[in-house]
């Protein structure tokens, strides 16, 4: 599944990041394969998404999140 489908409170591990669509800046902020991702809050219409990625809190748009492949982890 992609990051865009993550629900609030759900935790996931990033599996793949498409370097064609994702700018270097987002990678530098920790959005890399192997790192954790969690949805903190969504704005109205579920866009943008407020995420905790690898301990960094950041917000990105849904269209960007669609290019990040994740796998949910159950705890």
């Amino acid at each position: 599944m992609t990051l865009a489908e993550l629900r609030r409170g759900q935790k996931a591990i990033i599996k793949d990041v498409s370097s064609v669509y994702i700018p270097l800046k987002l990678l530098e902020m920790g959005c890399l394969p192997g790192n954790s991702a969690e949805l903190v809050q969504v704005a109205p219409f579920a866009d943008p998404m407020y995420l905790n990625i690898n301990g960094s809190h950041l917000a990105i748009r849904k269209e960007t999140a669609m290019h990040i492949i994740i796998e949910t982890t159950d705890e």
Binding site: S56, H57, A59
Partner: peptide
């Protein structure tokens, strides 16, 4: 290209 990322500081 439309792109947007912002840090949500504490």
């Amino acid at each position: 290209k439309s792109f947007f990322v912002i840090e949500m500081p504490n």
